[in-house]
Computed example of a mutant assay.
Amino acid sequence: MFGIGSTELLVILVVALVVLGPKSLATISRSLGKAMGEFRRVSTDFQRTLNAEAAQEEEEARRKKAAEKAAKVAAEAEAAKADRLERSASGETAATEPAPTPETPVADAAPSTAAPRPEAAAEAAASPASSGPSASSPADSPLAAALAKTRAEAEAVAQQNGEAAPAAENGGKA
């Protein structure tokens, strides 16, 4: 306790007994014990308050970090979306970009850096401008096959309904 040995404590108690007397020594020791107990309660309460405030600050820091991370992921998703829109507007197809898997979020999908094939560029130059960005897709791609199937179905429906201009002739507008 305070660096006082047992013999030194015994000497202090004997001196206090002689100076103060047995009755007042009992009341003083009782009040000293109460004061020590109160001091311990106050110090424990103070320590708990400090720990609670530190935990609250850590929680706020975690929430802020999580919010920043969510904002970063959202910004990356928006950038990827804008990149895809820009590529589709410039004539590149979605077939050149890897599709996101369930394990990989859209924001984490890396954009493709592969250059368009020369055949696709030649097809785009040879096709009319009204056919849109889908004209630059390779003929053997699944996107081109699905597009051709959809066009054929649209033309068949247009012929059944007796419409004058199928979708391919008027730039894809019905």
Rank of each mutant, 00 (worst) to 15 (best):
F2H: 08
G3I: 02
L10H: 11
V11Q: 08
I12S: 02
V14L: 05
A16D: 03
A16E: 03
L17Y: 01
V19F: 08
L20P: 02
L20G: 07
L20V: 10
L20I: 08
S24D: 10
A26M: 00
T27Q: 10
T27Y: 12
I28Y: 13
I28A: 08
S31K: 04
L32M: 13
G33N: 15
K34V: 15
K34H: 15
A35P: 02
M36I: 15
V42T: 12
S43G: 03
S43N: 15
F46Q: 15
F46L: 13
R48T: 13
T49C: 03
L50V: 06
N51Q: 06
A52N: 02
A52T: 11
E53K: 13
Q56F: 08
E57M: 15
E57S: 05
E59M: 09
A61Q: 12
A66F: 12
A66V: 07
A66M: 14
A67Y: 11
A67Q: 07
K69M: 13
A70R: 04
A70W: 09
A71S: 01
A71Y: 05
A71C: 01
E78Y: 05
A80D: 06
A82E: 13
D83R: 11
D83N: 04
D83W: 11
D83L: 08
E86A: 12
R87K: 07
R87T: 14
S88V: 10
S90P: 09
S90E: 04
S90L: 04
G91F: 04
A94F: 14
T96F: 04
E97T: 11
P98G: 08
T101W: 00
P102V: 00
E103P: 04
T104Q: 12
T104W: 01
P105T: 04
V106M: 15
A109L: 14
A109P: 06
A110N: 11
A110Y: 10
A110S: 05
P111D: 07
T113R: 06
P116I: 06
P116L: 05
R117L: 01
E119Y: 13
A120R: 02
A122K: 06
A122I: 04
E123S: 03
S127A: 09
P128I: 12
A129R: 03
S130K: 07
S130P: 09
S136R: 05
S136G: 02
S136E: 00
P138A: 03
S141L: 01
S141N: 00
L143C: 03
L143F: 03
L143R: 07
L147A: 07
L147P: 00
L147D: 10
A148E: 03
T150D: 12
R151V: 08
E153Q: 08
E153H: 01
A154C: 07
A154P: 00
E155L: 06
Q159R: 04
N161R: 05
A164V: 12
A165M: 13
A167N: 10
A168C: 06
E169W: 09
G172H: 05
G172V: 00
A174Y: 11
A174G: 11
